[in-house]
């Protein structure tokens, strides 16, 4: 499985580094490329953020100009509108539920699959990895029909539960080898001291698995936070919209008031960017660690 070998990666930090040939030309080229990359990445973000400080007339007149004068009304309107906060709250609720479900159920299943000996264990593990073979997008329409049968449309759980279900595969694939690597002597010691196996799981294994749990938690949270297709199918009523859905809808609704679309879009990427800058090590490590070969 693509991702299986990936799994111990977060445990092992870099051993030694390979550095390219340190010729002066190479280094100069590296700086040049670095600057180009930074510019290409940041300019679109800056453009949207600055656009929010302009009026629609300014934007139409000078598409590539700076705000002059700076206008605060766009941001003020968005911040004082209830819909932005609604979307933000919905995104948070969905992501927290999805992450919680994934981590708790995934850890329980990974514990059973890593430290119990029973018939059909490997088969069951292989079964869980089927989820890695196809992304949720592929199953979105069948899922929609399923949620309709279950009466979960227009319901935040209707988005959170399938997201958690689809995150289970990668979660188990990451957690199982991690839990397996924890020495059996620890378990024996705990048992001799009168702890049950579940007690060992709760008091010893989970705390020791904290780094791997963080990885899968970050993965589940970011995935859920950015998810678009399922909320698109499940929610019709704007009250339930998550941020990605809200941004896309806002753009088409206020296409005349471009400046407000700018302000709304930049505000909606703000939580992600702040979260990313604060927790960048965990996020980069988690997202790349989960798939590394």
């Amino acid at each position: 499985m693509a991702v299986i070998q990936a799994t111990q990666a977060p445990l092992q930090r870099r051993h030694s580094k390979v550095s390219g040939p340190q010729s002066a030309w190479g280094t100069a080229a590296a700086y040049a490329v670095g600057v180009v990359i930074v510019v290409i990445t940041i300019v679109p973000l800056l453009y949207v953020i600055l656009g929010g400080f302009r009026t629609t007339a300014q934007i139409n007149e000078h598409p590539a100009g700076m705000p002059s004068p700076w206008v605060w009304t766009n941001y003020k309107t968005v911040i004082t509108s209830s819909s932005f906060w609604h979307f933000l709250l919905n995104s948070t609720v969905v992501a927290v539920i999805a992450t919680g479900l994934t981590v708790v159920l995934g850890a329980m299943a990974a514990f059973a699959l890593s430290r119990y000996v029973f018939k059909g264990r490997d088969g069951l593990y292989a079964f869980f990895t089927i989820g890695l073979m196809f992304p949720l997008t592929v199953a979105a329409l069948p899922l929609y029909l399923q949620l309709r049968r279950l009466g979960l449309l227009e319901n935040l759980w209707g988005v959170a539960i399938p997201e958690a279900a689809f995150s289970l595969s990668i979660t188990i694939v990451i957690l199982r080898p991690f839990m397996r690597a924890i020495p059996a002597e620890l378990e024996d010691a705990a048992v001799v001291n009168g702890t049950s196996r579940l007690g060992f799981f709760w008091r010893v294994l989970l705390p020791l698995s904290a780094p791997a749990l963080t990885t899968v938690g970050v993965l589940a949270f970011v995935t859920s936070w950015n998810f678009y297709i399922l909320p698109l199918l499940v929610f019709n009523n704007q009250i339930h919209f998550t941020l990605p859905l809200g941004v896309a809808t806002f753009q088409s609704q206020y296409s005349v008031d471009t400046a407000r679309v700018f302000a709304f879009t930049s505000l909606s990427m703000l939580p992600t960017l702040i979260f990313f800058v604060i927790a960048q090590r965990r996020i980069v490590g988690g997202l790349t660690g989960a798939v590394k070969g």
Binding site: N226, Y228, V247, A248, Q251, F262, T265, S268, M269
Partner: peptide, 13 residues
């Protein structure tokens, strides 16, 4: 880490 929706709207603009 940005949602594809934000990217789509940004580039549409």
């Amino acid at each position: 880490v940005l949602s594809a929706a934000v990217t789509a709207v940004t580039w549409s603009l």
